[in-house]
């Protein structure tokens, strides 16, 4: 008590603008230690063995060599499952994005002011986003059986999580001005969403949905690996039979399709916005 009373009226130091000492960068040190520690630990944990990899590199190059001679005659077999794959991606994206659209408003704090509601539905959205797509597919194959339906459900849920998250973040960062203008004109909550929020975010929604579609086309090609329909089923068969010439053909075809889809999707985006 006394001490502090005495020290309080300390005279301000004379104007000698000395360079203040740079505070020690604890944070940087911690991050560095964490990184190095993490690297060592993860290396040990996963038994990283570069020697083994180098020693067996022949095996790997052999597969690559086989892959360099794709079995072109197999093309006719992959067309049908490929189309099924694209259909799965289209339907999954449409359903997922369709649900994500209203849902995003429900979890946006500038639209719904009730923190309990936004909190609860955000929690659900976050949980859904944590589950990897192939695991979802494996689960739904167990539930609805082998076939594209399991894939569609998986992609719909996956899209819902992705578009829902991106979209609500867009909704939360809109210009508040028009909302205020509408409120001042006597609009209710629904009218505000319709005339002040939706017009501002529609472009984002289209963009994110197309982006999700691009990702879904890629994802849908492997869902078949666990039985959820599409070209992945054939991928799994041929991998099992070590037919790397066919595997590489399928990878090539998927690559071509992905390029085309990405192009179409970007053109669609341009036309819609």
């Amino acid at each position: 008590m006394e001490m502090s009373e005495h020290t309080q009226p300390r005279p301000t130091p004379p104007a000698a603008p000395q360079l203040p000492k740079k505070p020690f960068a604890w944070e940087r040190l911690a991050v560095t230690v964490l990184m190095i520690g993490g690297l060592v630990w993860s290396g040990v944990e996963t038994q990283v063995n570069v020697g083994q990899f180098v020693a067996n590199f022949g095996q790997f190059t052999q597969i690559l060599a086989e892959m360099c001679r794709p079995d072109w005659s197999y093309v006719s077999y992959v067309v049908a499952p490929l189309i099924e794959t694209i259909k799965m991606a289209v339907i999954g994206t449409a359903i997922g994005a369709g649900i994500a659209f209203p849902y995003a408003f429900l979890v946006s704090r500038n639209v719904v002011t009730n923190r309990f509601v936004t909190g609860l539905f955000r929690f659900i959205l976050n949980i859904i986003r944590t589950i990897p797509d192939l695991l979802l597919a494996a689960l739904f194959v167990a539930v609805v059986g082998i076939g594209p339906v399991a894939g569609i459900i998986t992609l719909a849920i996956f899209t819902f999580g992705m578009v829902g998250k991106l979209f609500f973040e867009a909704v939360e960062t809109i210009d508040e001005g028009p909302i205020e203008a509408l409120r001042a004109a006597g609009a209710n909550q629904w009218e505000i969403v319709r005339y002040a929020v939706v017009p501002q975010v529609m472009g984002f929604f289209v963009s994110y949905t197309l982006y999700a579609f691009e990702i879904n086309v890629r994802a849908s090609t492997v869902l078949g690996y666990v039985g959820a329909g599409g070209i992945g089923v054939f991928l799994q068969q041929n991998l099992g039979q070590f037919r790397y010439d066919r595997v590489s053909l399928m990878v090539l075809v998927i690559f071509a399709v992905v390029l085309v889809i990405d192009y179409v999707s970007s053109k669609t985006r341009e036309a819609l916005l």
């Binding site: 063995n49 083994q52 990899f53 067996n56 590199f57 095996q59 790997f60 597969i63 690559l64 192939l134 890629r218 090609t221 492997v222 690996y225 991928l235 991998l239 595997v247 990878v251 998927i254 690559f255 992905v258």
Partner: peptide, 17 residues
């Protein structure tokens, strides 16, 4: 990016078990 990760994993399994 397009090369399926699963296929990659199987190829590496061939090499390192």
């Amino acid at each position: 990016r397009t090369f399926p990760e699963i296929v990659l994993a199987l190829m590496f399994i061939k090499a390192v078990g």
